[in-house]
Nucleic acid binder design. Sequence first.
DNA 1: GGAATCCGGCTAATGGTATTAGCTTCATGG
DNA 2: CCATGAAGCTAATACCATTAGCCGGATTCC
Lengths: 224, 224
Amino acid sequence: MPRAGLSPEAVVAIGLDVVDAGGPGGFERLTLAAVAERAGVAVPSLYKHVGGLDDLRRRIATESVRALDEVVAEANSGLAATSRSGTGSADTDDGSGAAALRALARGIRSFALAHPGRYAAVQFAPTQLRDGAAGDGSAAGDALAAAAAALLGRLDDALRAQGLPEACLVDGVRLLRSSVHGFVALEQGGGFGLPDDLDRSFDVVVEAMVAGVERLRGASAISR
Amino acid sequence: MPRAGLSPEAVVAIGLDVVDAGGPGGFERLTLAAVAERAGVAVPSLYKHVGGLDDLRRRIATESVRALDEVVAEANSGLAATSRSGTGSADTDDGSGAAALRALARGIRSFALAHPGRYAAVQFAPTQLRDGAAGDGSAAGDALAAAAAALLGRLDDALRAQGLPEACLVDGVRLLRSSVHGFVALEQGGGFGLPDDLDRSFDVVVEAMVAGVERLRGASAISR
DNA sequence: GGAATCCGGCTAATGGTATTAGCTTCATGG
DNA sequence: CCATGAAGCTAATACCATTAGCCGGATTCC
């Protein structure tokens, strides 16, 4: 009967630990039983702090999205300083702009490697939102939607800083996300046979993405 | 008591139906209960034909890999004919070679859109193989490993046909897979907000991938 | 200070899942 | 015609989430 001193935040924190301990798939395999055990509490007690497994997943996803958002923000601002050195050359810079994109991509991959479960939680977020978790008035759903929107906005900013016009922003963001997530998903799923030169392969993917963004910028300049 | 006339193959076929009926996530959410119900049989009866849920998943993954392999093979050979028209120009063709890559990418995406669950099963395969399902003497594990190797070999062939030297094949295949799978995974996970112009965005991703492969070929020519 | 309330733990019960054990029955082959 | 084996079944076990309802300690209010 000694109180464990739990709270929604504490449960989420423990959940994040459990998810991280499970590697990739740690989010999918998350279980209330595991959280309860680590909290030193019986399973039903968790329902006093959290709506259930789905709600806990949504909260964990929200935290994960925020964490990735911070990483992206840091990559953006960290290289914006470098990029601001040459002032009026925002239209034809291939150096600093590309560097910012590379840093962004590497930051996301590093996050995924450091926190596979959290990264999976981020990818899980859209499913939750599509299934009506947001907009139903639930605070958890709204928080997740807001965090996801912020993260996507961050990617928009990064590509806008590349001089990409609004009309191609959607395509640019999708190219960025597809490239990075495709590599990371395959890497974490064990899809690449040997861990042979993974960093070099990732560089190839990133360079293709950077070149694709530049091509997109060029194409839009022509069609305008 | 009337016999249902099941067999391992029949169970797998029903499992494929169930997986397809579940959309993306249909593979993850696959349940023996659903298969048994559709087969008109009690759950434990399935164990007479299949080793259990994991074994059924492995067999479904094998079938899915084979199906995708056929799609890739068709995309390869279908455009190899076109490519063979100009004979000795295998080194500098930007047209027919790129067309083959585009067809390959579109074929994979079409497969994923037509059979989301099977596509998920394909991505699930490496996990099974890593966890020692192959090489343990089990026929199911060996069959999956063989099917996966065949599929990867098919991708190798496609890039070799692009004039990519052996040294960059690994990077090229990883670029191809990352690009296509990244887009498809995000698309199927609902990661792209609106279904707005998805085809156009995919084209952007594919073109970036094609250009990346060509860059890879060029870079290897220099470093040699 | 004492009483009422509420909060956060608990146990018990329900229903879904996979898996194993063991029974029965039908079809088949000697 | 009977023996055997394959293929179905029920029963039982073990895990999971979820709900209902109890209980005790802390807090708050008079």
